[in-house]
Design a protein around this nucleic acid. Structure first.
Lengths: 147, 147
DNA sequence: TTCCATGCAAAGAATTTGCATCTAT
DNA sequence: ATAGATGCAAATTCTTTGCATGGAA
């Protein structure tokens, strides 16, 4: 099954369970998210969606992103400390962290099992129940390194 | 030598090298930062400094924090996605990462050498020149865990 | 028919900026 | 004397909210 279908299913289930409404705006936004680059922000989504559906407001975009995040369809992140939130689809993608070039903003995703394991161990050590984590490494990429 | 003295020295050197001014406001702010809890934000510093020095403006606080960060006296971080930046002194403290309780906001610092080493290895793998990194683990602390 | 969701504009929160004035060099 | 620095208030940027209206259940 496609991620977008799983997401739609998740949305439908969550809304039903909580007696919330399955609106066309929520469906449109969800569809657009899946026709999108991996990382995006509220404004990008708003601009993109406005092309086809110019009745959808910025407020609904923000409210829906929050909803999708709560349901677990989206991950919310602060990448590059730019003063706004980034989102990415959270489904069926192995957890990964980010390398960020401070010069050009290029994003490289990576996974490291040892780091993951150590995080789990650290939580246990401090009696913490882990919910999630974020690791960002800042640097200069191949094209912009100085040495 | 005390951290605060090292920081002052760093500031003095940087300003001279760049033909910038060594002002009383910058000295006051630097002093107050060292009489502060480890993690703070711009507003907290502003309020604190205003008690004794009520001519210092919010704008100068922001401008100075940016300066101190550029020099390397402060680290700037996004903790807990609260919509504002956190700062902490960057001198003479071993690098550490953060465990953050999503219920009460409690912050636990930790260091893990294996994680550090793997980060370096990952940068090499991708041809990246590492500048810094941030790792935040979100969860529920001992007092707030559910299981 | 009942509430939840939406659009709009206004409000908020954090941060930045324009400009006249001040001050370190 | 000459820029850079400051204070103030206004402007920006990203996000949230109040309220009247619209629409799923």
């Amino acid at each position: 099954m496609l991620d977008s279908q799983i997401a739609l299913q998740k949305l439908r289930t969550y809304l039903k369970e909580n007696q919330l409404r399955f609106t066309s705006e929520r469906v449109i936004l969800l569809e657009e998210i899946f026709s999108f680059p991996a990382h995006f922000d509220a404004e990008q989504l708003f601009i993109h969606v406005r092309n086809k559906h110019n009745h959808i407001s910025r407020a609904t975009v923000y409210r829906s992103l929050e909803l999708f995040h709560k349901i677990g369809i989206l991950k919310k992140e602060d990448l590059g400390k730019k003063g706004y939130a980034s989102y990415e689809v959270a489904l069926d993608r192995p957890h990964h962290d980010h390398l960020i070039c401070v010069v050009c903003g290029k994003l490289i995703e990576f996974v490291d099992d040892v780091i993951e394991q150590h995080q789990t161990a650290i939580c246990e050590k401090y009696g913490m129940e882990m919910i999630g984590h974020q690791l960002q490494i800042y640097g200069r990429c191949k094209e912009h390194r100085k040495e």
